[in-house]
């Protein structure tokens, strides 16, 4: 019975998820708006905070976990995450290379050739 109920929400989980999300959101906006975090570290900071908040909501709101009842959804989610990582990082990588290797508009063919 305890196992069957592990999928069920409790007030504590909802309050914990909400509280954590509020704090992490405030930290994200604070990191960019307050200027307390050096500019070159802001992106890394908000990415880490976003990942933490995604994990908090997945566990407390969407009830992902390793209990037998939750395993199916968790495995499907992890595989989807892999697909998303491939699509997003692949697109950025390919488009970055396409941009970097494009002949500049202002450059003539001869100039581009002489660069090689």
């Amino acid at each position: 019975m305890a196992n069957a109920d592990s999928n069920h929400a409790s007030i504590g989980a909802v309050v914990a998820g909400f509280g954590l999300s509020l704090v992490l959101t405030a930290l994200s906006f604070g990191a960019v708006m307050s200027g307390l975090v050096p500019r070159d570290q802001q992106l890394a900071t908000i990415v880490v905070l976003a990942v933490l908040q995604l994990l908090a909501q997945l566990v407390f709101f969407l009830h992902l976990g390793t209990a037998p009842e939750q395993r199916n959804t968790t495995v499907i989610f992890i595989l989807t995450t892999l697909l998303i990582a491939t699509v997003v990082s692949g697109s950025l990588w390919v488009m970055h290379n396409a941009n970097a290797n494009m002949t500049p508009m202002q450059m003539s063919v001869e100039m581009a050739k002489s660069r090689e």
Partner: peptide, 21 residues
């Protein structure tokens, strides 16, 4: 509903906050 909240976390991080840096 909770899933849409997850997507919004990515929206405010990678669209709004990242643009503001």
């Amino acid at each position: 509903w909770h899933f849409l909240d997850l997507v919004w976390i990515c929206v405010f991080t990678f669209v709004y906050l990242r643009e503001a840096i």
